[in-house]
Computed example of a mutant assay.
Amino acid sequence: MAFSTLLLIDDHPLFRRGLAGMFSSSGDFEVVGEASSGREGIELARRLLPSVILLDLHMPGLSGLQVLDEIKQLELGCRVIALTAALDRTELLEALHLGVDGYALKEMDPDALLAYVRQCSTGSVVLNDQMVSLLSDPALQSRAPMAASEVELTVREAQTLALIARGMSNKLIAREFGISDGTVKIYVKSLLRKLKLRSRLELAAWVYLSAQPAPTGNPYAADAESRHAG
């Protein structure tokens, strides 16, 4: 995996410094900045242009969702992974709508969180079983941005969507189809445009929210190979 720069945005100094130590010692990440508030985090993101941002969703002042929205509107090219203390379906759906690239519980085992962030940093899409359960709730089906019957996808776009929902990165999808990464990016951009969505993670969630046939097992548990792909 390529070396990634990391920005931490969290108002709890003890938790933030613990994350900084863990990621710095992993050998895969360089922690380039720490912010204790949403506004400071946005300014650091603009200046440092990190590869990955870990963002606490529950902070005083600007909320994590407001920070996420501003960062995504700036189009900085960084992946934003939201950290939350508790699962909330409304919050999850809003974060997905705003283009979040990952969504993790603060109570995760440190090694599991590190592995999750590694996967997200490569473009893989990963949600744990609890989050999949939230997205699979029948009560949420009406919240789909667009019904499956309203969308006309090409065969290759449908195949790409299915592999995204299984947690595969562009590199692995390209390998699966025997095509270039650039061609896969074209399919992904077309899917985002047709479905009126903002991120790969929201594409994967759409599979559940639109009542699309789900792949066998947890489709968000990325294939073992993707855990080591760059």
Results as ranks from 00 to 15, higher is better:
Phe3His: 15
Ile9Arg: 01
Pro13Met: 04
Pro13Cys: 01
Phe15Lys: 03
Phe23Asn: 02
Phe23Arg: 02
Phe23Tyr: 08
Ser24Arg: 08
Ser26Tyr: 07
Ser37Gly: 06
Ser51Phe: 03
Ser51Gln: 09
Leu55Ile: 01
Leu65Thr: 11
Gln66Trp: 00
Cys78Gly: 07
Ile81Tyr: 05
Leu83Phe: 08
Thr84Asp: 08
Ala86Ser: 14
Ala86Phe: 14
Thr90Tyr: 03
Leu92Ala: 12
Leu96Val: 09
Leu96Lys: 09
Val100Pro: 05
Gly102Gln: 05
Gly102Glu: 10
Tyr103Val: 08
Val117Ala: 09
Thr122Asp: 04
Ser124His: 04
Val125Met: 12
Val132Pro: 00
Ser133Trp: 01
Leu134Ala: 04
Ser136His: 04
Ala139Gly: 09
Ala147Asn: 08
Ala148Ser: 09
Thr154Phe: 04
Val155Phe: 06
Val155Glu: 15
Arg156Thr: 15
Gln159Glu: 15
Leu163Gly: 06
Ile164Lys: 06
Arg166Tyr: 00
Met168Cys: 13
Ala174Leu: 05
Arg175Lys: 14
Gly182Asp: 13
Val184Pro: 11
Val184Tyr: 05
Ser190Asn: 12
Arg193Gly: 06
Ser199Gly: 10
Glu202Arg: 07
Glu202Thr: 09
Ala205Pro: 09
Trp206Thr: 05
Pro213Cys: 01
Ala214Ile: 15
Asn218Ser: 12
Ala221Arg: 14
Ala221Trp: 09
Ala221Gln: 14
Asp223Glu: 15
Gly230Arg: 00
